[in-house]
């Protein structure tokens, strides 16, 4: 069974056609890069896979699941800019779910947050502020990555996960992402081809259709 399958999927947003009769199969464990200029529909495709949008026509299956309301159960998503709730680091990782402490700590370790957390007086219970304004961009993004790791989903969607970060922070976040991607199906959208090194396939958006380009 493929991880993600598009069969003749079309989708329009605000009277603009984003996807035209798209058919695509992404096997389990594959790493797929999506490239194209801003606004071409990369994020929309990820949101379709996550079940945040529903296709206008065609069928979209994620691990065999076709009900849009249930697609999100199979995916974790890392967005840019990172969205943090005005709560503690712990709550931002668990999103209010009961979660064993070991799983949270393991997610923090994989997201390269542990060293920084040890230096915080309140550790995981540190309040991140509104929109994470008490943290740097890199720290916020790594908390979002820890959230995605703790989710333990088989499919990972990344939307410009490192594009707004400076080089050292981007390198640290990439390190965290490598942990996150281990053994998972990954679809990563970016406008920068260089960030897709080691990916199995790279697809480019052009006029609502996907075209494979040499990786």
């Amino acid at each position: 069974m493929n991880a993600i399958e598009f069969h003749g999927v079309s989708f329009s947003y605000r009277d603009e056609t984003i996807l035209r009769d798209t058919t695509l199969a992404i096997p389990q464990g594959a790493r797929i890069g999506l490239v194209g200029p801003s606004g071409c529909g990369k994020s929309t495709l990820l949101k379709l896979v996550a079940g945040l949008y529903a296709p206008d026509s065609g069928t979209l299956a994620v691990l065999g699941e076709t009900d849009t309301e249930r697609l999100h159960r199979h995916v974790a998503m890392v967005l840019q800019p990172p969205l943090l709730f005005p709560a503690s680091i712990r709550d931002n990782i668990t999103c209010g779910h009961d979660m064993p402490e070991e799983r949270i700590l393991a997610a923090c370790e994989a997201a390269q947050l542990s060293g920084w957390l040890r230096g915080l007086p309140d550790g995981l219970d540190t309040y991140v502020g509104e929109r994470g304004n008490r943290l740097s961009g890199g720290q916020s993004q790594r908390i979002c990555i820890a959230r995605a790791i703790a989710r333990q989903s088989p499919i990972l969607l990344m939307d410009e996960a490192t594009s707004a970060l400076d080089v050292p922070t981007g390198a640290a976040v990439m390190g965290a992402l490598r942990s996150l991607m281990k053994g998972k199906t990954v679809v990563s959208a970016t406008h920068d081809l260089a960030r897709l090194e080691g990916f199995d396939r790279i697809l480019q958006f052009r006029e609502g259709r996907l075209h494979e380009i040499p990786s």
Partner: peptide, 9 residues
């Protein structure tokens, strides 16, 4: 919605 956190919010 992605993280089933609506009830928590």
């Amino acid at each position: 919605r992605l993280y089933d956190a609506s009830e928590w919010l």
